[in-house]
Design a protein around this nucleic acid. Structure first.
Lengths: 217, 217
DNA sequence: GCCACTGTTCACAAACCGGAAACAATACGC
DNA sequence: GCGTATTGTTTCCGGTTTGTGAACAGTGGC
């Protein structure tokens, strides 16, 4: 089970912990001095909840050094305390006063979003789900059987969702920088992938004529 | 000034409009049947606010067809009405009841986030947006389908916005310095572009008689 | 108003590009 | 080592894009 870390500048807030525990989440609470947040974050920490209702936390200082791999942060604040760094670094904001249900909804939202985008081991693009760790692909929970190269190519395109790649770029990135082969190789692989995943008429891979291919969700 | 479009399934909510207007935003309100949202979105629409407190809106149906160029959406809902499509398609959610200040904060947040993303690789010329990296063109968030040469020519003119080019200059710059073809070729391409982007009567490419063509924003 | 010139539109042919299929080579499991 | 699955290559085909000539329309000079 994914776990939630509740941080606050003073003694840990009990109400947030209770609400989230009641909702079935695993919760840890930490009093955070502005020195460092990193040590408090465990591997299974899926979400940070920053309780800033009684005193502010400088998210710029706390969150920025964590980099891109940090779990998303839900800021809990009083409405007058909204400042630019909070707006920028919080994935979402719960404005006090709020009901228990609202908080839980926001937590659920933040976790879902993370699952949808940032998760390291599953890639969700509409009905298409790529389980990166286990080399599995499914559409509407229906498993799709891809070969290794097909999988690699699809994974690459899907991670860079929306971006166009030339055939050469794909050869470089998927086949490797020292691979010298014809560009049609890419075409053929794209075709094989399409024939396996575009059964329902849904288009996942677009051709950009004269340029290359692009994945669209 | 960027403008906010408030949509709702029934008669437009007055309270949302008032709160946002008071906060200094330019607001339009529309009653939306599930048929189409696209026509209601204007060029300067920077944010959609969906009022779903009295009746739900199917964001999957409304937002999905808009594609990537659509403005972000802030859903306003009752806490029990939170469903998966709303979670997925809304950039943010305001859970009723909320204070005026919370709503304004969320609007500000959504607009800031959008601003933050505006990539250096997009060219904005009025309602026309060219995503250079990804070979996408949109007018009023409506994607436009251009062929390669059309895209290249439009991109060239739009980057050198306001400057007049002779047909020869365009042949040199877009077709290449060693291309020897008739100047009418340019005319025809200009015409094809115009037929795709000047639907609404708006003129993007001006002909400068005796000289050539010029892009105007 | 007429003429010359330029721009626009249309129609059609050529070139180009991507997709499909067949085939070849390679890797892999048994 | 053999057979099968995967990957890469080649070739052909069809559709789209692009280029061009010609007809038509509009505009300015005289």
């Amino acid at each position: 089970m994914e776990s939630i870390l509740v941080i606050s500048p003073d003694s840990p807030a009990t109400d947030l912990g209770r609400i989230l525990t009641d909702a079935g989440y695993r919760v840890t609470a930490e009093r955070i001095s502005e020195s460092g947040l990193a040590p408090a974050i465990a591997a299974e920490t899926a979400l940070l909840v920053a309780d800033m209702r009684r005193a502010p936390l400088d998210l710029r200082v706390l969150v920025k050094p964590l980099g891109e791999t940090a779990p998303p942060l839900l800021a809990v604040i009083e409405e007058h305390a909204l400042d630019a760094p909070t707006l920028e670094y919080a994935a979402d904001i719960a404005v006090s006063p709020f009901t228990d249900a609202e908080l839980v909804a926001r937590v659920r939202l933040a976790l879902l979003r993370r699952g949808g985008e940032a998760s390291a081991d599953t890639l969700r693009r509409g009905d298409l789900v790529i389980d990166i760790e286990n080399y599995r692909v499914a559409i509407n929970h229906e498993p799709v059987d891809l070969t290794y190269k097909e999988y690699e190519l699809l994974k690459f395109l899907a991670t860079n969702d929306g971006k166009v790649f030339t055939r050469e770029a794909l050869l470089n990135r998927v086949w490797g920088y020292n691979y010298y082969g014809g560009a049609r190789t890419v075409d053929v692989h794209i075709r094989r992938i399409r024939s396996k995943i575009e059964l329902n008429g849904r288009v996942y891979i677009e051709t950009v004529r004269n340029v290359g291919y692009r994945f669209t969700a």
